[in-house]
Amino acid sequence: MKQLAFGLVLLSTIAVTTYFQSEILRQRPTVLKLGPVPNAEVLKALAGEHRVSLALRSVARVMFYFGSFFDPNDNRLQKFPEYQSMFKHLENAVKIDPYNMDAYYFAQAAFTWEVGHAKDVNKMLDYGMQYRTWDYWLPFYAGFNAAYFLKDYATAAKYMQIAAKMSNNSLYTRLAARYFNEAGKSGLGLAFLETMAKGARNETVKGIYEKRIAAYKSLRRIEDAVASFVAKTGKQPDKLATLVRAGLMQEIPQDPYGGEFYLDATGKVRTTSDFAMMSENSTASPDLQGTGDINKQKKDKP
């Protein structure tokens, strides 16, 4: 009986400490959550044949870390993740296993739209293309980044041609042509996002894309209405309500990021949220604000 009681006391102690411990561990600093960034060369040498598993673990840690900041209800970040540390872990992962597709895919999903580091991501993709010589997704991502974020259309066309050649599919050539002939930026973004969302199987990543697709579709609807208004009246609408009154839209679409659409002084459709992933009550460590590099957390509001 005494033995049983002793066992029960031990079990209860384990349960209580686990409960409190889990909260403390959840709140621990990033350096402890993601771990320090070890030297990739040393890791590669020590890991030997386990390097594939090690790279997988590294990417999974970044993914879980990033996912822990997400509110599953509205697919928005509740806190600022430490993007710099995340990116270094991904860089390390591809140094250990340059074939690791998850690392390239996650870098494309998390470091272009939100952090605006398409240039760094393209460097990583260029590195990956040396190894994944059969994979047309990498030049496809790089081509999109070059066109959409960096506005380097010549480079973008080159990447798209590589993607077309690798996939033996003229779809990418047609996509490239269609993208580059698009008058509005939102059309280019929407086509890319729809392609990415189709292939996403991770719920967090899929959520990011779906939310952005909804936002761009709303934006596209307003842009189309503005274009129709201009074609009909020969002048720019002064505000979005004018488009509703003119019967070009039934109502002003909602911004899924919580902002409100408006027309700026030049007649361009904008939103007060700037399609930022952060929620209103999100918190950030002050030292990470406005550093201008990969830590740069928020875009300027219009």
Binding site: E49, H50, V52, S53, L56, A60, M63, Y99, N100, M101, D102, Y105, F106, G199, A200, R201, N202, V205
Partner: peptide
């Protein structure tokens, strides 16, 4: 894994 379930399974099994 987000994009390489098959590759991950082979890597993990070999490890």
């Amino acid at each position: 894994s987000m994009r390489q379930v098959q590759e991950s399974s082979i890597g993990l099994a070999l490890s």
